[in-house]
Design a protein around this nucleic acid. Structure first.
Lengths: 152, 152
DNA sequence: TTCGCTGCAAACCATTTGCACCCAT
DNA sequence: ATGGGTGCAAATGGTTTGCAGCGAA
């Protein structure tokens, strides 16, 4: 696993998770995880698999799915489902704050934002409805500046 | 179409949409739409199809899907995709305000809420990121009071 | 008498899983 | 040598679509 891409804490957490669950370290997993942390974005299994096409074309799509699921279970990635039909994975640290997303409907650009006021208002809404809030997601969809200008 | 269930404005808008698009009124569509407006909730095609099982068991699931899509295109229903894998439809008037949803992860209860402060903050976020906002969705997931107490 | 509509079954498509073989421990 | 891992192909599951016959205008 090329250590350059992967934060040491993430690597440790991953290896620890494997050990704790009777799982094994393999070259395929190392390659996939290396690419995942290199990309750093919001990637789908398909995208990651395509990115590995050239050099590691023997790695199967199913293995990519399985490895991403392990990362999610280990707390190293978040599963994100936007409105485009497929699941993306985003690398994260276990102590990251919650954040939301703003997605360009034209080019697929995903940006993150945090807004404490909105978080607070959501807690209020949940309380007013007698709900115990367990998670929440806010997605803003639109056109990024570049795509918006292209369209004019 | 049993007029009791369907607001006159919705009925008119539906018939007008059919005419404008060279579509026809059929008994199956009337039955499906009647049931949809009777339910008034956030229903999936599957649920609606099941609800028609007893009396109208010959109506195919594909027709339910097709009819709900027409309602959405006519502006009489919103497609909603929460995190449970299937599409729900919610009846709406063309002049309804945007609203968001709070969903019980245990029993599936869906409630709606409006919050102008959150709406305003989202506009600000979009502006700060140089996005032209086209739509947005906010979903709060948790446990409703009944399910939360059941769990203790 | 047109076309659109319907039910059925097959197709879709992202994701998962069964299986026989492979490899880390 | 165990037993988990892998690639492949087949299965899944919600949704869509092709098609031959049906029905509204």
């Amino acid at each position: 696993m090329p250590k350059s891409n992967i934060p040491a804490t993430a690597k440790n957490r991953y290896l620890e998770y494997l050990g704790r669950n009777g799982l094994k370290s393999t070259v395929q997993r190392d390659i996939i995880i290396g690419e995942f942390f290199k990309t750093r974005g919001h990637v789908s299994a398909e995208q990651l698999h395509t990115a590995l096409r050239g050099i590691h074309s023997s790695i199967g799509l199913a293995t990519v799915y399985r490895t991403l699921k392990i990362l999610a279970d280990a707390g190293l990635a978040h599963e994100r489902r936007f409105d485009d039909g497929f699941t993306r994975y985003e690398c994260c640290a276990p102590d990251d704050n919650h954040h939301d997303h703003i997605v360009c409907l034209s080019c697929g650009l995903v940006q993150e934002f945090e807004n404490d006021e909105i978080e607070e208002l959501q807690r209020t809404v949940a309380a007013n409805h007698n709900f115990r809030m367990l998670k929440h997601k806010l997605e803003i969809y639109g056109l990024c500046k570049a795509c918006d200008e292209k369209k004019k």
